[in-house]
Design a binder for these strands. Structure first.
Length: 220
DNA sequence: ATCCCGAGGG
DNA sequence: CCCTCTGGAT
């Protein structure tokens, strides 16, 4: 089976069987999405959504957030992962947006990555979701799932995964394919013990062929 | 104990 | 390339 055929099978499967998201990041505008995504590192969407309403009420836009002090903002972020870093990042991000980008969230990956707390993954999410740019954000789910299925070959970095995925996924499907991979990783192809018995990708999945099927054979 | 839609610094 | 940050759910 060629890689092209593998991609075709996977994309077709997802079109019909992609799981529904139980929770999504809540936001009303690019500013809110950027804040939410920065906060989402190593943290569930549900928990991010518990903290953002208070932040958005206190700081309704980047201008307001740029004037926040650490001691004001920290308590609102206290209950999620890395509150120290995230507090500094949010304030630094807001200051740079105001000072360098005239108060508008920049909409290119290169500019976004300049902002404190914004790495390539976050920049790809923002440009993809807000501006519909065909960018592939590679988080732990996308990285793991793509490798297991065999969509990537010897990809040891998120950037390598990103490039290989973009090479084979049609531009118009990049956005939705990203979502499919995330959801599949979150609910089926979970990190520790993936639910292969619930997964229709078994016929093409390298992980299943190599580990699970071999294991079953050894036991049976 | 291990995992959550990572980024920055050494 | 590695390490650190660091809280809550399961």
């Amino acid at each position: 089976m060629t890689r092209k055929e593998r991609y075709a099978f996977v994309l077709d499967y997802f079109k019909q069987h992609a799981p529904n998201a139980e929770t999504e990041l809540l936001y009303d505008n690019p500013y809110q999405l950027l804040v939410a995504v920065i906060l989402s590192a190593q943290c569930t969407d549900k928990r991010v959504n518990m903290t953002t309403p208070a932040i958005f009420e206190e700081y309704p836009d980047v201008e307001a957030l740029s004037h926040a002090t650490f001691d004001d903002l920290f308590p609102l972020i206290r209950s999620i992962s890395y509150p120290n870093n995230k507090t500094k990042h949010l304030i630094g991000m807001a200051k740079m947006v105001v000072e360098k980008f005239h108060g508008e969230i920049p909409m290119t990956v290169d500019e976004l990555v300049e902002l404190p707390g914004v790495g390539r993954k976050t920049a790809n999410v923002i440009t993809s979701v807000v501006d519909n740019q065909p960018n592939m954000a590679v988080d732990t789910h996308v990285f793991r799932v793509a490798a297991r299925i065999g969509l990537t070959l010897n990809a040891t970095t998120p950037l390598a995964t990103e490039k290989q995925l973009l090479e084979f996924i049609p531009k118009e499907l990049v956005h939705i394919a990203h979502h499919w991979l995330i959801l599949h990783g979150r609910y089926i192809c979970v990190a520790r013990t993936p639910k292969c018995d619930e997964c229709g990708l078994r016929p093409v999945c390298k992980y299943y062929q190599k580990n699970v099927k071999a294991g079953v054979k050894a036991i049976g």
